[in-house]
Amino acid sequence: MSENTRTILICSGKGGVGKTTLTANLGIALANSGATTAVLDADFGLRNLDLLLGLENRIIYTAQDVLDKNCRLEQALVRHKKEPNLALLPAGDPRMLDWMKPEDMKKISELLSEKFDFVLVDCPAGVEDGFKNALAACQEAIVVTNPELSAVRDADRVIGILNTSDIEPIQLVINRVRPNMMASQEMLSIEDVQEILSLPLLGIVLEDEQVIISTNRGEPLTLTDGRSPAKKCYLNVSQRLSGKDVAIIDPKNESNSLKDKFMRLMQTKVF
C-alpha cells in the first residue's frame, strides 16, 4: 500500500447537496493536474457518478467482482478517455445492497492506493451502513453542505461521527452559494456555516446552471473549455486540496452589480 495515497471521503449526511458533482469535478481536476486519481462510487445503491462522468456505458465489472476474484482490478477500472489519469470504480451493483462490509471497502481502497495518488470516495447520503462502510476506507474527509438549515444540521451529525473516528483532516466545502442572497442576508453566510460547524474551510462552490448543463452532457465542468462560476470554484478547491496556497473564492467578489454593492453596504456592522 502506497504511503502517499490520499483516500478522501466525500460525504454530507443529506442527499442532493452536491457530493457526486464535487467528486466528478475534483476527480477530473486532480487528474488534469497530473495526479493519478480514482473515484470510487460507494453510493452504489443509487449510483450516478458514472453518469456525471459520461462513463455509464462502459461499466462491466465492479469492486465486488475484484474481491470475488471474477476479474482483476485493472479490468474493473473504467479509464476516462479524455482524462487518462482518471479512473472510475463502482463499489457494487445496485442489486446487491447489503453485500458490503467495512472490511470490504477497506480492501478495495488498499488495492486502489497501490495505483493512485488520490482516491475520492463518493459517499451515500445518511449516517447508516453505507456511510460507515465508506468511512472505513478513508483517511481524510470532505464534508459538503449547502447554506441551508437542513443541510447544515445533517452535516453536523456526520461531523459528530467523523470526530469519533481517526479521519483527519476533515474539511468543509459549501456548495450552491448565491452571492446576491448572501449579500441581502437571506442566506446563511459562509462565516455562519463555518462557525457553526467549526471545520476548516476547503472552499465554496457557487450556484451555477452550467452544472446542470454539464451533467446533461456527461462532461464535468472541469473537463470543458469554457468559463463558468462553478468551474472556477471546483478548480480552486482542487488546488487547495493539493496543497497549493491559493485563497478561497469569496462570494463577495463574485457579484458586482450595483444592487449587490448596495446590499453589501447594508451589511456594515453598526454596533
Binding site: L265, Q267, K269, V270
Partner: peptide, 8 residues
C-alpha cells in the same frame, strides 16, 4: 447588528 437590521 448591521445597517440593514437597523433600518428594518
Amino acid at each position: 447588528m448591521t445597517l440593514r437590521d437597523l433600518i428594518n
